[in-house]
């Protein structure tokens, strides 16, 4: 086990290498992204304040991520509730199809949506990115919410029915509060996925780029690379923060249901 532990730690170093290097170059004075480091500066972060196109892209991404997260979580609640609490004909096939975007290459989702949109004579825009992101975030929301709903004791809902509550009011007053941690977790994960997603946005974004699409265009200009590093640092810190909060909520949900924690979202 000792050799395995050394290997595990080396593996973590490999996994984290890009993320650790990012802030080193973001705070480095040199415009060339290479070692040795030349000195400390925050100038690249302040430079970000002057790039208005980036601010537009950021705002656009934020709008798309919030909308996609809400939609994916709503679809996730329906899907997870149906698959954990009920048995219906064709369940395996239907659920498998809904979860398909998890393994489908994103470029396939992107081009197939693009041809339909163009064939219908519509033009792409934020709405089409939202449509695509909702599609790929829904399986993640379902995976998280499945464990939230599975942990829910059905006798609590039955008690509510017996006390005269309707299906709708039981859902609102009993089910919803109990799965709330799962819902928050699903919202945050979906938001993070949408915020970072590139391929679908690249194909479907139209005239207003999202932040990753704008970032991709910045990569072609060596002069802008330090600013890319600064922006990347902010994004990575933000993602880790959101994911940590999501994990805390997920665990709280699991604890509330008295489940043993199995760890991980997937």
């Amino acid at each position: 086990m000792k050799t395995l532990k050394t290997y595990a730690i080396l593996y973590l170093v490999f996994l984290y290498a890009p993320i650790f290097l990012l802030p080193l170059f973001a705070f480095n004075t040199s415009t060339i992204i290479a070692f040795p480091l030349t000195g400390f500066t925050t100038e690249w972060f302040t430079a970000l304040l002057d790039i208005t196109e980036m601010h537009n892209a950021l705002f656009n991404s934020f709008k798309i991520a919030v909308t996609s997260a809400v939609l994916a979580t709503i679809f996730g609640i329906f899907g997870a509730m149906a698959s954990t609490r009920y048995h219906f004909p064709g369940q395996k096939g239907i659920m498998g199809f809904i979860m398909l975007p998890l393994v489908l290459p994103e470029i396939i989702v992107a081009v197939s949506l693009l041809v339909v949109i163009l064939k219908l004579g519509m033009s792409t825009g934020s709405w089409s990115v939202i449509a695509g992101h909702t599609l790929i975030c829904t399986p993640f929301a379902i995976a998280i919410l499945n464990s939230a709903f599975a942990a829910l004791d059905p006798s609590l809902e039955e008690a509510a029915y017996d006390l005269g509550e309707t299906r709708a009011s039981t859902f609102r007053r009993v089910t919803l509060p109990l799965v709330m941690p799962g819902i928050v977790s699903a919202l945050l994960i979906s938001f993070t996925i949408s915020m970072d997603e590139f391929i679908i946005a690249f194909f479907l974004t139209g005239a207003d780029p999202t932040l990753p699409v704008y970032l991709f265009s910045m990569l072609r200009f060596p002069k802008l690379l330090p600013a890319v590093m600064a922006l990347g640092t902010i994004l990575v810190v933000l993602s880790i923060l959101l994911i940590t909060i999501a994990e805390i909520f997920r665990r709280r949900g699991a604890k509330r249901a008295g489940l043993k924690d199995t760890g991980g979202f997937l």
Binding site: I19, L22, V228, G232, I243, E247
Partner: peptide, 21 residues
Amino acid sequence: SLWIFLITIPFWTSYLIRVFL
């Protein structure tokens, strides 16, 4: 669960940035 969480964190950060790094 802490180990699994540590392993999954990098996956949730921007793919574009990781590839560029």
